[in-house]
């Protein structure tokens, strides 16, 4: 395979994979991610927000993952129905969007590292001074920055999942993508708040 094609496949895998196959790979990724999150105490608060939370039940992690997948997908689906001139299959959008969550496993793995435990000790009731005095906080913050490329990859894949599954281009694509990702993040956080 040529180098250019490998890069193209990494940036937009949905030109090659969609539908039930993407749903199966994505579903496996979701289960792996739920188990990892459960072990490490790494909660999904929204599409773009992660951290610790006061509920360590396994179902809470599963529910968070499902919400983070389903909310933007439903928003994209509605946006696609309105903005796309093509008829598209729900299984392609739901499958590719689930597949797009796979890079977040990278973030889970970073949060599984021992120095990251300090972040789970921080709660919103603590004063800024107390937070800064946590031992090993600097290293944890630096390590958490290594998780950003995985988050960016997931967002790029979500964008491309919408682009390929709904055949959207230009302004319509960007409008639906921004509503789905930013609006979806807000809606996810509203739903997930009920679990804490």
């Amino acid at each position: 395979m040529k180098e250019k094609e490998i890069v193209a496949r990494c940036v937009n895998p949905f030109v090659w994979i969609a539908g039930v196959r993407a749903l199966l790979y994505g579903g496996t990724g979701l289960l792996v991610s739920v188990v990892l999150s459960w072990f490490t105490g790494f909660h999904y608060h929204g599409i773009l927000h992660f951290g610790s939370a006061p509920n360590s039940a396994w179902w809470c992690y599963l529910a968070e993952h499902l919400i983070v997948w389903l909310v933007p997908t439903v928003l994209f689906y509605g946006g696609g129905l309105v903005a796309s001139h093509s008829r598209f299959r729900a299984v392609d959008l739901f499958g590719t969007m689930l597949f797009a969550q796979i890079p977040l496993i990278g973030m889970n793995l970073i949060y599984a590292l021992p120095p990251m435990k300090v972040l789970s000790c921080i709660n919103p009731a603590m004063s800024p001074q107390e937070i800064l005095n946590q031992p090993g906080l600097g290293l944890a913050v630096v390590l958490s920055l290594f998780g950003l490329p995985f988050l960016m990859a997931a967002v790029v894949w979500m964008f491309n999942a919408l682009k390929v599954s709904c055949n959207l281009k230009g302004g319509r694509l960007w409008t639906v993508a921004l509503i789905g990702i930013i609006g979806g993040d807000v809606v996810c956080r509203m739903f997930i708040r009920f679990f804490y």
């Binding site: 030109v15 090659w16 993407a22 392609d92 390929v164």
Partner: peptide, 17 residues
């Protein structure tokens, strides 16, 4: 073609357009 179903369908839809 070794591509996904929506990719082929998108080419067809763009061709129809």
């Amino acid at each position: 073609m070794g591509v996904s179903y929506p990719t082929v369908r998108n080419i067809l839809d763009d061709l129809i357009e």
